[in-house]
Write a protein that binds this DNA or RNA. Structure first.
Lengths: 207, 207
DNA sequence: CCTACCGATCGGTAGG
DNA sequence: CCTACCGATCGGTAGG
């Protein structure tokens, strides 16, 4: 008997269970971003990876654990990239800041990078018991920004309290998830590089 | 026969149908903000205003029209307050900007002001056919900010393109919906006045 | 990972 | 605005 009809070919790796799990997380991220956690059914996700409706529950105990996996993957990838920026010890704070800003825009808008937007916009759908684990990772990410902004503030390049600056700057960048669309062909489309540059120009005060 | 049990007294006005409609919009805004559009049932809303499950459909054709009414009310209130700021012709651009920032924080965090946060976080739940009407109002709101930021830029108080500045600054403020909680008793709690001040300090460059 | 299925919930409606 | 209700959908499961 044929499976359910699909409009597009399923996105699947080979049959290695670990890879199939990855498929689910990646596709879930995309669908959650597009339609929200509550607006996406487990059936939608299953179909998109070429499974039947009950099979995702072989990989995840329930839908919420799939949501957590999406967020966790986003923070894991984000931490990897941002820690690499920080580890370059010779970099001046201003240069570190510029790279962190550009990296964060990439995390939001690079192709296939749907994990962090899901965290930002479906945070309230995550049950409290799962939040702890994500918060732990999120705190590490915030720390990277925090220490960089404290350096900038000491140098007089930023005028406000470092913590508030962090919340506002990340807020400004995060909000681009609602209006920036990389695929847009509009003439006035801005590159991520330009966007990062403008963001830095807006909030820093060169002496 | 008694109605369904409630944990809290229903929030109701008198029986004037227009007032009951307002009750629904206000309560829906609060619940949508807390639990999301998809996470809130029409039954939840009905119970909270002291109606039975089918009765909201006497006031609204469907759940989506209730969502639209919430967003519309938010923009109506926001426009009212912001236009008042703009209309004071004698005001320097910098002072206008400060007041707009403070006003926007109020729109997000004043008691009972849940309409705009719903628009920000449940925008994708609004069907396209309803979006047009909301976009029209939203454009008027953006115009107020846009012209003020253009003035600031001409005076050299802001370093970036006015449109990008608008998106980034409103983004920074809007994102406070995810982390600022007016009721929080934390010692480091910041007032909306202080928040507005810090925001202005972050993005303006006094000469 | 599939088949076959269930229990619960939910938006919405007819008729008063 | 209430009563009584329906059709559809959905997360999740047993058994293989």
């Amino acid at each position: 008997m044929p499976g359910p009809r699909r409009k597009t070919a399923p996105e699947r790796n080979d049959d290695n269970p670990a890879n199939r799990r990855e498929d689910l997380v990646r596709v879930a991220a995309r669908l959650f971003r597009e339609k929200g956690f509550d607006g996406t059914t487990v059936r939608d996700i299953a179909t998109a990876v070429g499974m039947r409706s009950g099979s995702p529950f072989y990989h995840f105990a329930n839908k919420h654990e799939l949501l957590m996996a999406v967020m966790e993957e986003g923070l894991r990838l984000g931490l990897e990239r941002s820690e690499a920026v920080i580890e370059d010890a010779g970099l001046p704070a201003m240069e570190r800041f510029k790279r962190l800003v550009r990296t964060h825009y990439g995390i939001l808008h690079d192709t296939g990078s749907d994990f962090i937007p899901v965290m930002l916009y479906d945070w309230r759908s995550l049950p409290d018991q799962y939040k702890r684990r994500i918060i732990e990772l999120k705190d590490r990410y915030d720390d990277i920004w925090q220490s960089t902004l404290e350096d900038l503030q000491r140098q007089g390049l930023i005028r406000t309290d470092a913590k508030l600056a962090r919340l506002m700057i990340l807020g400004a960048i995060n909000f681009s998830a609602t209006w920036y669309h990389a695929r847009s062909r509009a003439k006035n489309a801005v590159s991520l590089d330009a966007l990062a540059e403008q963001t830095v120009a807006l909030v820093t005060h060169p002496t």
